[in-house]
Write a protein that binds this DNA or RNA. Sequence first.
DNA 1: GCGACAAACGGACACCGTGTCCACATGGCT
DNA 2: AGCCATGTGGACACGGTGTCCGTTTGTCGC
Lengths: 233, 233
Amino acid sequence: MGNGLTDPGGNRANGRVPPEGARPAGTGRELPVLDLEPGRPAPVRERADAARNRMRVLKAAEELFATRDARHVTMDEIAKAAGVGRATLYRRYPDPASIATALLDEHERQVQEHILSGPPPLGPGASPADRLAAFHVAMTDLLERHLHLVLGAETGSARFATGAYRFWRAHVRMLLTEAGVPDPDAMTDAVLAPLAPEVYQFQRHTLGLSQARVTEALVWSARRLAGGGAPGS
Amino acid sequence: MGNGLTDPGGNRANGRVPPEGARPAGTGRELPVLDLEPGRPAPVRERADAARNRMRVLKAAEELFATRDARHVTMDEIAKAAGVGRATLYRRYPDPASIATALLDEHERQVQEHILSGPPPLGPGASPADRLAAFHVAMTDLLERHLHLVLGAETGSARFATGAYRFWRAHVRMLLTEAGVPDPDAMTDAVLAPLAPEVYQFQRHTLGLSQARVTEALVWSARRLAGGGAPGS
DNA sequence: GCGACAAACGGACACCGTGTCCACATGGCT
DNA sequence: AGCCATGTGGACACGGTGTCCGTTTGTCGC
């Protein structure tokens, strides 16, 4: 659960960059002011009670998502659990999904920064096949640790609308292009499809497969698709 | 829009067999009585007004699903459009998804029968790689023609609970096993994931890719995964 | 044909979640 | 200390759900 400093603006839903080139680091905001110099506490300060309530909300939501099926958590429940009025909740977040997104943000950003500038094989430097394999390892790890949040945030068609999906998509597309795969634009979403939270949930908890088996299968598949293996034949 | 003979029982939701072996033909019911001998019109007859209303409902639902976004069609709308009371609707179908499933049933069954006993490469006889490629062609074709219904019937986690998914899963698992793929149980759902209606919808209508490109990408991927390429190395 | 019984019908009700509005309070700056 | 902008939350209207129960309508036995 991130500290209270991030995101004084509120409910912008996971607006991270769709890179392609690279983006050094920085906080991912689209507002004019880029970051906070210590001392001058940014243009408009968030009121103390507002900050307190934001934390209450996030904490309460985190627990709720972990307890019930995240897809059935309602705004009303979160407001009750956080001890704030419903309208207060709506002021910042339009729906439960965007709260889950906010909670997920920190974890996803870590992976994204690693991809952009961390050590290989996940970061730059390794072969496309190795990077794609490492990507799948990182993603299944993320899914395993935060499945409840991902189910709450990126279910169904909503998944494709998130900033996070744009990031994963741009990355995978680049790797497939480098690997010489035929139609990267069409292939990318096929490669990302098995990472949909519902799929992982089904494999892990309905079929009862271990995390390792799911990961290994995706790694094998990644190597097979992006690997140097005889392309024409 | 199937004829009125099928499914006098009503709302059993797409209960087709998960084969593995084979099943000759027959109607897919799990009730004690297996099929109808002509003349004796089955144990309990469906009343004429009931049959009339079932047809009205299916016809109205079909049009609604084709018009609006199928995921937002409500029971109330369908009832209104069909000219029946809501309770009458609930008597047969618990939710809009199961109506979409009923409409889809006919089309999916055709593909399933082709897979079980039609000519190669979709039917038995061809190599696993060719059959898997043909499977993807058939599935994208099904998605293209009935996307609205599939979106209404098999969205999100609901997809995995349908009888249809069990069928596709058993088929693909068999092909992957024959092809010597490492962990077929874990691979199968990864192979099926790109066929989720949301993914296809995103590729076709958000990205604007042609049906051919999506299909080709999946075919290439199928060949690459199940193809004879050096297995050990 | 005709009546009786069971099956099917549909209007109406209670419930829940949503999204918004507005009167009030409360914190921060001068 | 006082003022104003900002944040708060009770309350409202709405739309969808699922079920109940009095009424209608087919079908079968006579």
